[in-house]
């Protein structure tokens, strides 16, 4: 009887989901790449050669803010290989990757220049929610969408949610997939910055004034 109860309680194994062929975490080369994400955020990712990785020396990311003519260093956590950097709109930046050896820095790689755009002073809510686009273009089952929403609502369930709320980030074991995505200390602690609420009619009015 007890055996039956145990059998009933045992949860079924999670269904196998094919997420494709595994890809290497590193290409064993020194590089740093910067991508503009929004007027306030630049995404950085980097990779190091095997000998640097094996040596276990920390890396330093040097930010050259060319617009403000200043530079500063970021000290990412040891297992991080990417970073969402908060910047101001309309800035041009360049990045360098260093290896810290004792008190010395050895330059490993440099990124190209990237420029953040101007923040749009439009009204919020102009954009079609991604859920609607999904239903329009990629109609999947509602159950799957609901499951995805539930996963997003669970702390640590969805990486996007985690990124926006570092405080709610579930701890990850070292070596687990995504372990290297440590929370960058300068990520926004609250919700992402909201657009400045200037009604676009005013923007137009100003624009058309020039056409008269």
């Amino acid at each position: 009887m007890a055996k039956t109860t145990r059998a009933k309680r045992a949860s079924p194994p999670p269904p196998y989901i094919d997420r494709g062929e595994p890809l290497p975490r590193s290409n064993a080369e020194n590089r740093i790449v910067a991508l503009v994400r929004s007027p306030e955020q630049i995404y950085l990712y980097w990779d190091v050669e095997t000998e640097v990785r094996v040596a276990g020396n920390p890396v330093v990311v040097r930010v050259h803010d060319l617009t403000a003519s200043r530079a500063y260093d970021l000290d990412p956590p040891a297992d991080a290989d990417n970073w969402y950097l908060l910047v101001a709109p309309n800035r041009t930046c360049r990045f360098e990757l260093f290896e810290r050896r004792g008190g010395l820095l050895r330059r490993l790689a440099a990124s190209g220049e990237v420029t953040t755009p101007i923040r749009w002073a439009g009204e919020s809510g102009e954009y079609v929610p991604a859920e609607i686009i999904q239903a329009v273009r990629y109609p999947i089952s509602r159950q799957a969408a609901a499951a995805a929403r539930r996963a997003r609502a669970t702390p640590g369930g969805h990486p996007a949610e985690v990124a926006a709320n570092p405080a709610r980030r579930a701890p990850r074991a070292a070596g687990a997939p995504g372990a290297a995505k440590a929370p960058p200390p300068d990520r926004p602690a609250g919700p992402p910055p909201t657009p400045i609420p200037v009604p676009w009619e005013k923007v137009f009015a100003a624009a058309y004034a020039g056409g008269q």
Partner: peptide, 10 residues
């Protein structure tokens, strides 16, 4: 949100 957030996030 008008920029690249949908195609570049966690």
């Amino acid at each position: 949100k008008g920029y690249f957030e949908v195609w570049l996030n966690g």
